[in-house]
Design a binder for these strands. Structure first.
Lengths: 341, 341
DNA sequence: TTGTATGCGTTATCAC
DNA sequence: GTGATAACGCATACAA
């Protein structure tokens, strides 16, 4: 991969405008104390030559890149897309760009991606969740790189966070079903390894069911990868049990969509014969038929707050190490009274 | 935004290992002609010091960054997420990273984002579609930057492309409905300004309906932003007409989901009372009830091919300026015979 | 307000 | 094979 282009340099602009390179640089950086006349001449020269400054040289010389990095598990799930969009928008207000890296829920890939971001010289880093390879913390600390994790609620001074409690809403979801008379609950969970959010949600489901005296047997907890088709498969598995559940708690909305759609195909009526819940509150959720009971994850708000807080940290401001947001239940029609046997 | 960290430099590694900086650089770049002994000592020193090379300095000195940039309208639509995922995966095989920039279908933002990518020194650029500000082409040409557009089928030697025909499948979709006896068709389109794909699809719908002698009156073409809720609103608008359509052609799957879900809510049966089509074939499509008739956009394949072809271009290879992929219809149960009045 | 000179952390071109 | 050293393109003290 090579490049032969003879690009126009800052030096060329200076020559064209008949000024020094320093002056061009000042105009570029909107530095104070530049005369209107000089600025105009430089800008005209830039325009004429179609000059584009070299970000790498710039970063090298100024020791700042004007961008932060975000490490997200996947862009397949629109909930992260929404957060990223909001984060990026907000960063713009601070004249800061966003570099996105994905790691498909593989923590080794995450570490690798972080290394890449650090090499790029990002001014700060955003992480999802609390599960990471130890080297992640080491690297971040060694470089004294401002960072923020989100999407969880761990109260860890060494690990600043803007997130929400994943366990509590899960518990409340299960309690809601128990209150509706359900006793045979089941869970469709995303893989919990390296995913503290999925673990917390599962734990919430467990706590509520155990407290109610009807704990979840292993066969009623199925773990599947992310995806509608996977949710549908999980439905088959669960409904094939000797004692199929009357309610299925899903680790996220996409899995719940899969369960509901499979139910419809099999002629299992939701919620009359089967209650289903999700987690995320994607825009589809309220449009499903019936509308999906789920948890409203504040993705947009997280993006906004992370942007502000991380920029503040980069600027050396002291910030609280934990901002907890609300993740309220969205009770809709996919949950109803337990069927009478 | 400043950074005070005293990082370990290549020079420190050299000192620690007792070799020259050049040797360290060689080890880093897996250059040939380095003795095993030297390599081991250097690698040990790197490990000990936790050294991470500076990507910016590296890019500056080597005049290559090892990354390409992708300009996508939005990450909200999972179809682009899928393409990006596939692109990124494939680029890895070529030791190339991916920088993602979004522009929310605003061509001025796209140009701005391109400038940013160029500043970053990307080795190549991926664009979606054929609609761009003229300055995009100018900038790309001036920098002699390898690039590739995708998702369309314009046969333009100056604008290399890996995509598919948007109009033809749209036409075939409409013809399918006409064949089923529908005469009052309607279209829910994404905004066509700055979006050649949306225009082409609309044009395809138009051609087929006009050829069949039942052209689309203006009131039966509604344009809405992307989103489920927007699709649902479009349904309301169309079904509120004096002569409501018996079939609705949607510009993408998400709009179709909105239409179908709104129909279900209103008790309008799909396809008995209303046929609906999409465009994209998102994973949800086949799981809707009824499964959605749509067009299978080869997003994964585009990502893969774009990676290979762009890398080839960067390496100076001559490539065909157009690779046309197939976008077959996925005929499912959301379309059926026109109801008898 | 503007210009000069030095340094940012690597890679690459020479020598040895 | 390995080691000096000059680029790479820009920002920024410092000087004027």
């Amino acid at each position: 991969m090579n490049k032969e282009t003879q690009r126009t340099l800052l030096e060329d602009v200076a020559r064209e405008a008949g000024v020094s390179t320093a002056s061009v640089s000042r105009v570029l950086n909107r530095a104070p104390h530049v005369s209107e006349r000089l600025r105009e001449r430089v800008e005209a020269a830039i325009e004429r030559l179609g000059y584009v400054p070299d970000g790498n040289a710039r970063a090298l010389a100024s020791r700042r890149i004007g961008a932060i990095g975000a490490l997200v598990p996947t862009l397949d799930n629109p909930i992260f897309g929404a957060m990223i969009d909001s984060l990026e928008q907000r960063l713009k207000h601070h004249d800061c760009r966003l570099l996105i890296a994905t790691y498909r829920y593989d923590l080794d890939d995450e570490l690798q991606a972080l290394r890449t971001l650090v090499q790029q010289g990002v001014d700060g880093v955003v992480l999802i969740g609390h599960d990471h390879r130890p080297a992640v913390g080491t690297l971040l600390a060694r470089r004294r790189l401002p960072f923020l994790s989100c999407w969880h609620a761990e109260d860890d001074p060494a690990w600043p966070c803007i997130g929400f409690d994943n366990a509590a809403p899960a518990r409340r979801l299960a309690e809601h079903l128990l209150r509706l008379g359900h006793r045979r609950l089941a869970v469709v969970s995303a893989p919990t390894e390296g995913n503290d959010r999925a673990r917390a949600r599962l734990e919430g489901f467990r706590q509520a069911t155990e407290a109610a005296g009807c704990p979840l047997p292993p066969e009623r907890i199925v773990t599947v990868e992310y995806g509608i088709a996977e949710g549908a498969r999980a439905f088959e598995t669960l409904m094939g049990l000797e004692a199929p559940p009357t309610a299925i708690l899903c680790g996220n909305d996409t899995l719940a969509f899969g369960v509901m759609l499979a139910a419809q195909r099999k002629g299992v009526c939701v919620p009359d014969q089967l209650s289903v819940t999700g987690f995320d509150d994607l825009s589809q959720a309220r449009f499903m038929s019936p509308p999906l009971t789920t948890v409203a994850v504040p993705a947009i708000e997280i993006g906004r707050r992370v942007a502000d807080a991380l920029i503040a940290r980069i600027d050396g401001k002291i910030m609280p190490h934990l901002q907890l947001l609300d993740a309220p239940l969205a009770l809709r029609e996919s949950t109803g009274p337990a069927p009478i046997d």
